[in-house]
């Protein structure tokens, strides 16, 4: 993979982001609802006071002028002020992004760590009870609504068994000075095992809720693609050579079977960001997903714009990462 290719990929981002900005802007502009009205709430206000606030929020301009202004400012890295936080949107987003990244990563690791072994086992022991159990479980995993499953976990582990906390990212005592802003890593870097365990206890339920549907899908993909690969001539050949079963599975079969898994994982990680919105609300997780949902409801245009751009960048970069991973898994693939 050359540097040129990377630059090309990054350049491709520009039209994507422009398109995304335009679509989001248009959608927000077409959705009924007025942030000024929402902010003023149930109060008696004079028209003059309302006009002043509208001007203050830059909403007295017609939509096309607002869009041009937004693009011009965004090109300089200025995404405007959050209407309701009255601070630069990037500051608001930056305070919430690490929690979402951490939750997504843990959910991803959980999903991969269960899906790949389970998928492989199900394929190798095709039609056994284990295969059937894995298939049925993954069907449940795909079908369970995250919202319902999350609350179910809460009632069981937090209310009845009382072994895990209900909400939040860490208890009061688990404060460590940030390094990476990922709590699980920071607590270890600072040598605070107690804080690490506390953070872990907070992240388990949301991560399981978020990771379950992904694990379910990945199990099915891995199983299918493993079954396909196991039928290939080179696997038969490897077996014929007298290689140990384990070596055949790991070196010859799994490595090739993982390519579809990586593709789906990349796409699914993108949708983890979407799933975050529900899970973060249920578990009071201080992440970006919840912030975006709240912002949509109150028509906080600048924040929604900027957040969607971040989602778009993440999505594109994840797919790029998947492409890079292909070359590692199969050297014949060239970018």
């Amino acid at each position: 993979m050359s540097l040129g290719r990377l630059i090309e990929r990054l350049a491709q981002l520009v039209p994507v982001l422009l398109g995304v900005s335009a679509i989001v802007f248009l959608m927000m502009a077409l959705t009924p609802g007025d942030p000024v009205e929402i902010m003023l709430g149930d109060q008696h206000v004079t028209e003059e006071q309302e006009r002043a606030l509208r001007h203050d929020m830059g909403l007295d301009l017609p939509p096309h002028e607002r869009f041009v202004k937004f693009l011009a400012n965004a090109a300089q890295g200025n995404f405007g002020q959050s209407f309701f936080h009255r601070q630069p949107v990037m500051d608001v987003i930056a305070s919430r992004l690490p929690a979402t990244i951490e939750l997504s990563l843990v959910a991803l690791v959980l999903a991969l760590a269960t899906a790949i072994p389970l998928g492989v086992l199900a394929a190798v022991k095709k039609d056994s009870w284990l295969d059937r159990a894995a298939t049925v479980t993954s069907l449940f995993g795909v079908s369970l609504p995250g919202f319902w499953f999350g609350i179910l976990l809460l009632m069981l582990f937090a209310v009845h068994l009382q072994v895990l906390p209900v909400a939040g990212r860490a208890g009061y005592e688990s404060e460590v000075a940030p390094i990476t802003h990922l709590l699980l890593i920071d607590t270890l870097l600072r040598g605070r095992l107690d804080a690490f365990l506390d953070a872990l206890s907070h992240i388990i339920l949301p991560a399981v809720t978020l990771g379950l549907p992904m694990a379910a899908i990945l199990t099915r993909v891995t199983r299918t693609s493993m079954l396909e690969v196991l039928d290939q001539d080179y696997v038969t050949f490897a077996r014929a050579k007298g290689l140990r079963r384990r070596a055949v599975l790991a070196k010859h079969a799994l490595k090739n079977a993982l390519i579809p898994t990586v593709t789906v994982a990349a796409i699914e990680t993108g949708s983890l960001l979407g799933g975050n919105m529900v899970v973060e609300t249920v578990f009071g997780w201080p992440g970006l997903g919840r912030l975006v949902v709240e912002s949509i409801f109150v028509r906080n245009y600048p924040l929604v714009q900027a957040a969607v751009l971040i989602y778009a960048i993440t999505y594109v970069m994840l797919n790029f990462l998947a492409d890079v991973l292909y070359t590692v898994l199969n050297p014949r693939v060239r970018l």
Binding site: M155, A158, P286
Partner: peptide
């Protein structure tokens, strides 16, 4: 901060 009703009750 626990925005979801069911979770707040659980807490």
């Amino acid at each position: 901060i626990i925005p979801e009703n069911a979770s707040r009750v659980a807490a």
